[in-house]
Design a protein around this nucleic acid. Structure first.
Lengths: 352, 352
DNA sequence: TTGAAAGCGCTAACAA
DNA sequence: TTGTTAGCGCTTTCAA
């Protein structure tokens, strides 16, 4: 690289001197403050490009306490999250909304145990104005970390309530897992199905799985336990769970599978066992991941959520909080976290 | 969230006062400098935790010119990159190596046209000590941006030479695409194959594709043009290209396919056309993405590159440059970018 | 509309 | 081993 011999980065002062005005004036020009004479503005702008001046954010930050950057923190062992189209879409929503506010999204990963300390330092060190966090593991240290640091934050997915708490301490955005599950199961019931089974996610670990199961139970108050089989949100898990259900309850005529990926596995099992879908067994999934839901055979009836919209919402919620934090500096008021649950809708295709 | 009523963050000064020493001493404790009495260290540490003091990075940065953060900039329309296992692996390598140096990797995306200005501001604003960049589009503005900003940088993949340049202006890390292709083709030749075809990537757009084609030609100096078919690094593209080759040269007995993904498509076509692999047609891929190469039928013989290692290397190269930049501040010396081409090796499975 | 001066929170000589 | 003193490059009163 052409490493110029230390051409010290120009500063505000350099620009001021060269354009024959004071630092304050240059600062005003940079920040688009109104009360500067037009010709002065032009002159200063000229010098800025001539010198290739770029404001030093550290210096600015030191006085404004603003960075215009927001961290997105993703936790996932081995980065499964990273390859997940759901997350991809969510992230796009977040980035778009942040960009609308002129903020830069910076993505941080939290994989190995050592990462915690470094990320905590980063978040606590004032590099960002706030954080959007995804904590997929229960009992994660993320919440505690955020609390200690005192950074405005919004979580993706409803966190587990901590022992002793009756209310969530952090704002979160989540899909209406319970309501969506109800829609799915009601649809199966309305089709006249009498033996509606369900394949669940890891409901002891993730609230989304627990909520989807709760929705199933809301509709089928007295569903016998043998109609419920737990899986792990993977395709293979869905296939296996479906097999187990079929072995146990050969007379089942419908199944609500708590994710599209698992549903695609379940469909495979049903086909292998010679059950026609939807004639013999009606199937409803959850997520509406187009890649999956439209390419299964038959195409999957499933519960849709506006994932990119959820991402945008998370960003918006975060801005509410950072701005409130600014105001709070003056008023000293305190508020409860305004979390949001995003509605779902049933998308009818051919499997139910 | 429990928004405390503006409990102004404690500063170095607060810690100093409360522990009855000077700011310098506290600073020394924080930075683990040796010459501080043990009891003083303890006392200060105590106060630090008591107050929950976290250093203000902006202030520190302002004087040290160090952030301990490195940006990883990914360009890709619609984030295809993001879902790519290759990139996932590369990124892991980068993160691990950065972590070893105590640096935080922050990932930035560059999708929409508006993103450029914001990212440029971010990179130029002193938020990071350097950047690792992936520019997959030819004629990208990234190089120019980095040059203007004057930030230590390392690129992933050999960039196209710019008009008028005879040498690369930026450091880069790349796999030995040309050498790997030579290994692949030599292997096919050593098997006694006489009509060795190739399915290429978009060699007019990406240097990796161009280099792999060049490697093929290095070995098969007088390969007739009809044995070369261009595709686009997708599975479908590979399948279509294979079909075209078969139509044109029914007598081909081997094919070097420039990526595993395309190779899996090619295998599919070969099977559909009733050609046995490797008996009738021997196939060699490129990349050695385990997910693909081990699950094709037959398992794919392919060219392996140590992707995570390449990631680590990129990070290491970047540290070389940031540290050199520090020294250069004093010596004023200039050096050419030390780019690295990482060797490949052929992994023999069953397809050739 | 502009400028002077103070200060954000830290590190780094230099003295002691 | 510790403290004193200058800044780092910017924004922001306050005066002019």
């Amino acid at each position: 690289m052409t490493q110029r011999p230390t051409p010290r980065r120009p500063t505000l002062e350099d620009v001021a001197r060269r354009s024959g005005v004071s630092k304050s004036t240059v600062s005003r020009v940079i920040n688009d403050e109104p009360k500067v004479r037009a010709e002065v503005v032009d002159r200063v702008r000229e010098v800025i490009t001539e010198l290739g001046y770029v404001p030093n954010q550290a210096a600015r930050q030191l006085v404004t306490h603003r960075t215009n950057a927001v961290a997105v923190v993703a936790t996932e062992p081995d980065n499964r999250l990273f390859l997940d189209p759901f997350f991809d879409c969510l992230l796009r929503g977040i980035r778009r909304e942040l960009a609308r506010h002129g903020a830069q999204a910076v993505l941080l990963f939290l994989d190995e145990p050592d990462d915690y300390a470094r990320v905590a330092d980063y978040l606590g060190g004032g590099h960002v104005d706030g954080a959007v966090l995804f904590s997929l593991r229960p009992g994660d240290r993320l919440h505690e970390m955020i609390e200690r640091i005192g950074l405005p934050a919004v979580f993706g997915g409803r966190p587990l309530l901590r022992a002793g708490d009756t209310v969530h301490r952090h704002a979160y955005v989540d899909g209406d897992n319970r309501g969506g599950a109800r829609q799915a199961v009601r649809h199966l019931v309305s089709l006249g199905r009498k033996r509606v089974a369900t394949v669940t996610g890891p409901h002891d670990q993730e609230t989304s799985a627990a909520d989807r199961l709760a929705g199933y139970r809301d509709v089928l108050l007295d569903a016998p336990p043998e109609l419920t089989e737990r899986a792990d949100y993977t395709r293979q898990g869905g296939a296996d769970a479906m097999a187990a259900l079929l072995d146990r309850c050969p007379d089942l005529d419908a199944v609500f599978v708590a994710s599209d990926l698992m549903a695609s596995g379940a469909l495979q099992t049903l086909r292998a066992r010679g059950r026609r879908v939807p004639e013999d067994v009606a199937v409803v999934g959850f997520d509406d991941l187009t890649d999956i839901a439209e390419s299964t055979d038959p195409p999957l009836t499933t519960v849709h959520q506006d994932v990119e919209g959820m991402g945008r919402l998370m960003a918006r919620l975060l801005f509410d909080r950072t701005e409130r934090a600014d105001r709070t500096d003056r008023t000293g008021r305190t508020e409860a976290p305004p979390s949001v649950v995003v509605p779902t809708r049933l998308v009818l295709r051919d499997s139910a």
